[in-house]
Simulated assay, not measured.
Amino acid sequence: MRLSSDLQALSGRLGHDFRTPELLLRAVTHASLSSATRPDNQRLEFLGDRVLGLVMAEALLAADPGATEGQLAPRFNALVRKETCADVARALALGDVLKLGRSEMMSGGRRKEALLGDALEAVIAAVYLDGGFDAARATILRLWADRIGAVEQDARDAKTALQEWAQARGLPPPAYTEMARSGPDHQPVFTVEVRLDNGAAETATAGAKRLAEQAAARALLARMETTDD
Rank of each mutant, 00 (worst) to 15 (best):
M1E: 14
L7P: 02
L10Q: 06
T20N: 12
L25V: 13
L25E: 08
V28M: 02
T29L: 05
S32F: 08
S35I: 00
T37F: 12
D40F: 00
E45L: 11
R50H: 10
M56F: 06
M56N: 02
A59H: 03
A63D: 06
D64Y: 01
P65Q: 05
G66H: 00
A73N: 07
P74H: 09
E83T: 11
A86M: 07
A86I: 05
V88Q: 01
V88W: 00
L94N: 04
V97Q: 06
K99T: 15
R102Y: 13
R102E: 15
S103P: 08
M105K: 14
M105W: 13
G109V: 13
R110Y: 11
K112I: 14
G117C: 04
A122Y: 05
A125W: 05
A126V: 04
A126W: 02
V127R: 07
L129T: 09
D130N: 09
F133W: 15
F133R: 15
A136Y: 02
R137Y: 07
T139Y: 04
L141F: 01
R142P: 03
D146Q: 12
G149R: 13
Q153V: 12
K159V: 13
A161I: 10
L162W: 04
A168P: 07
P172V: 06
A175E: 14
T177K: 05
R181H: 07
R181C: 06
R181P: 02
D185M: 10
H186K: 02
V189L: 13
V189A: 06
V192C: 06
R195T: 14
G199M: 10
A200R: 15
T205Y: 05
T205I: 03
L211S: 10
E213Q: 09
L221F: 06
E225L: 15
T227Q: 15
